[in-house]
Design a protein around this nucleic acid. Structure first.
Lengths: 258, 258
DNA sequence: GTATGGTTTTGATATGAATCAATTTGGACG
DNA sequence: CGTCCAAATTGATTCATATCAAAACCATAC
């Protein structure tokens, strides 16, 4: 049942046409010049569509590819030796999942679709080969991986130094700006993940996440209806993230009560 | 005073001789064939020696190089917008510091020597160039960066799911195996960092670190005398890391109450 | 329309680690 | 050899969040 790489039918093995992709300015194609784009298209497969819960790759399977999200959303998670799982990332359209697979060996995490999702698949060996030939692509891969390392450090900071409120504010703000990057509303979001995934990702209990959502709502920072979230006061959320309980607000912005 | 990149005297700008370096089997040279080693040596500078506390590079400075530790130890840290600092990593001989600098732009963290330390310096532009020419080197760079991303995820897991005891056990075990890689004793370590750095790295208060050390000592897991630490019972430490408070020990190992 | 199972919310309580406060240790240096 | 300052330890108390328990909500299926 669980295939390392999903079985594909012939008609699914479509060469992707980055030229026509609306995400090309967010995704790998942005790294290569018009002239070399064809060579990137040569190695990419437009994969099948995944339904909610479908696994894209599984921890410990041989790492063959990394994936770009075309539509939908992906979450990655790792399971430690004790068997408990932690969500390690959420990936939205235009973002690359499984960059660690470039380390060779096996996938260090499991990737699943959070909703109906379509992906482009980049076989690591070909991607590596092409990177050797296209300095711009190599540069961009280094860039992306470096970013991912930095994100990890930010995450460590968030997890070890920040309160539940700050962590959730940070996540909402991150999602907001990533939505904006795609020219979607930065204030009206539909969260692709359940509260439990948010909790796992932020190192909190589900109950805490729920409580913070209601607290934010009561404070007028957000309006949340299940997965529909409206960010009513971005500056205030930023303030929460920055100096949650701190007495002295650094800037002139302070959020309204009620 | 604070130089982005330390000033060097002419005699310090020595071409490194990876051929003769005892760490070549742990460091970048291991990636390139005997024939290409000279090309790597061409781009590496054997930097000056750093004293305890010397900064190697500073957050927000232009990222020009990454560094391999030859001897001594390095710690990296980031400072967030609130101004509080978090230690993000410790680097021992044979390990590469500042891989994120390959993302281009500025350093995302500050690196300082924890003790008298000597480093080799790899200018990122040249390293990138050479990676394009030497597939094995490129492969290795991807490998290292992928590893670093994975380490980040492990860290996130540790910080959000594990108790103080588990975090400290994990750190001691990590140091132990990294010492062993260098053919040093895996049980008698001299910690290169103060308790406060351990605390910051693991997201704990110094007091907690101190308490756990004494607790471990009382339980006969370690013998600690300041920075001198002897790991008396590695399997027990592993057990602590795995299933700290859990009722049912998974394996046959249970530690003695000493 | 009503049953069903998972998700989310809410409440009460317990607890691990932070914080505050003080003491001890140990190395650097005159 | 004693002084000094930073690092480390120990103790008492507080607090944020986990945990336990239950209710409410919501989508889907029947």
């Amino acid at each position: 049942m669980a295939q390392p790489i999903p079985l594909r039918h012939a008609q699914d093995l479509l060469k992707a046409s980055c030229h026509q992709c609306s995400l090309s300015n967010l995704c790998l194609p942005l790294a290569v010049g018009e002239g070399d784009l064809a060579r990137l298209e040569d190695i990419v497969y437009q994969g099948r569509v995944y339904n909610r819960g479908d696994h894209i790759f599984e921890q410990s399977d041989r790492a063959r590819s990394c994936f770009a999200v075309k539509s939908g959303a992906v979450r990655t998670s790792i399971v430690n030796e004790n068997g408990d799982e932690q969500v390690t990332g959420f990936f939205l359209p235009g973002e690359l999942v499984g960059l660690e697979s470039l380390s060779g060996g096996d996938y260090a995490c499991t990737a699943r679709a959070l909703e109906r999702t379509s992906l482009c698949e980049f076989p690591v060996d070909k991607l590596e080969q092409l990177s050797g030939a296209l300095p711009d692509l190599q540069h961009h891969m280094f860039h992306l991986m470096g970013q991912e390392i930095q994100t990890g450090h930010q995450m460590a900071m968030l997890l070890s130094r920040n309160t539940a409120e700050q962590r959730i504010a940070a996540l909402l703000l991150s999602l907001s700006s990533r939505f904006q990057r795609r020219r979607l509303s930065p204030t009206r979001l539909t969260l692709p993940m359940p509260r439990s995934d948010i909790a796992s990702f932020l190192g909190l209990a589900v109950e805490t996440v729920s409580r913070v959502f209601t607290r934010f709502q009561k404070q007028g920072l957000i309006h949340a209806q299940g997965r529909q979230v409206e960010l009513l006061d971005l500056p205030a959320l930023q303030a929460v993230y920055r100096d949650n309980g701190e007495d002295a607000p650094r800037c002139q912005q302070h959020h309204s009560q009620g």
